[in-house]
């Protein structure tokens, strides 16, 4: 049933990485509880444009929970008050009439703010570039069915590969560690025979890059797993640690 609510929004505004940021307060009214959180933000922005003010900048693209672009820290939780969803999948039925909603960007040293709620997550790309792949060129590869892969391994690899690179794990972690993200990629590839070959080298290269880029260390608080919209398990971190150990022992 369609219902509407009124909200007070406390939104982080910041002009650039080096500028000083601040909260601004806005009111939005008659928000349908069937609308998504980002549609509510669209309504806010239409309102700001009609007042000749600059709309709030936020990242988004697919609006269906798969591209990993949306990234809001809502009422103290990455991706807001619902489980297993991204910000773009969050719906206004999760909020109460009259509520004050605080909206911030991801906060982590390795993710500098670009503008308002938009942060720079290119550090994740750099970690992948350091080793998050199988080293094969186009062409000259074996037939796809040449190597049978046990279904449970393929399924586990698929689960780990579901990471959307959103960065919520980093935002949720008090140390701003990227271990869940890194471990998901390391596990995905290590679980498959095609990726197994380089598993140890990959783990070492990716961890080294992660450290270099200013992400913190992992102290096993498990906050990342709780906030991950794709249910990436911290069991992957254990697997990463094993691979990493193997790599170090091999030195």
């Amino acid at each position: 049933m369609e219902k509407t609510i009124n909200l007070t929004l406390k939104v982080w505004r910041q002009n650039g990485p080096k500028e000083k940021g601040r909260f601004e307060t806005f009111k939005v009214s008659n928000i349908s509880t069937d609308s998504s959180f980002l549609e509510m933000m669209d309504i806010l922005n239409e309102q700001l444009i009609s007042e000749n003010k600059e709309p709030v900048a936020f990242d988004h693209d697919c609006r269906e929970g798969i591209c990993g672009m949306c990234s809001l820290y809502i009422n103290g939780r990455p991706h807001g008050p619902d489980d297993d969803v991204t910000t773009c999948q969050l719906h206004m039925r999760k909020f109460k009439d009259g509520e004050t909603v605080t909206i911030e960007p991801w906060r982590a040293a390795a993710f500098p703010i670009i503008k308002d709620l938009i942060v720079d997550r290119s550090a994740f790309d750099k970690i992948i570039a350091a080793g998050g792949y199988v080293s094969v060129n186009t062409g000259g590869v074996p037939d796809a069915n040449a190597i049978p892969i046990p279904k449970p391994d393929a399924d586990d690899a698929m689960d780990a590969a579901s990471c959307i690179g959103c960065g919520a794990c980093v935002a949720a972690c008090k140390n701003s560690s990227a271990m869940l993200f890194v471990s998901a990629k390391v596990s995905h590839l290590a679980l498959l025979p095609q990726g197994r070959v380089e598993a140890a080298r990959r783990a070492k290269a990716m961890v080294a890059k992660m450290d270099e880029l200013g992400f913190g260390g992992c102290t096993n608080t498990g906050a990342c797993e709780v906030e991950c919209p794709k249910n990436i398990s911290i069991a992957n971190i254990a697997r990463l640690n094993r691979e990493y150990l193997v790599a170090r022992l091999g030195e």
Binding site: V141, K151, A154
Partner: peptide, 23 residues
């Protein structure tokens, strides 16, 4: 088309498999 599937599997794309381990 067939080369695409070969290429993707070589890259580690986790396509769905049957219990026998094939695609």
């Amino acid at each position: 088309s067939n080369s695409i599937i070969d290429q993707c599997v070589a890259q580690g794309v986790p396509f769905a498999r049957e219990y026998g381990g094939l695609l």
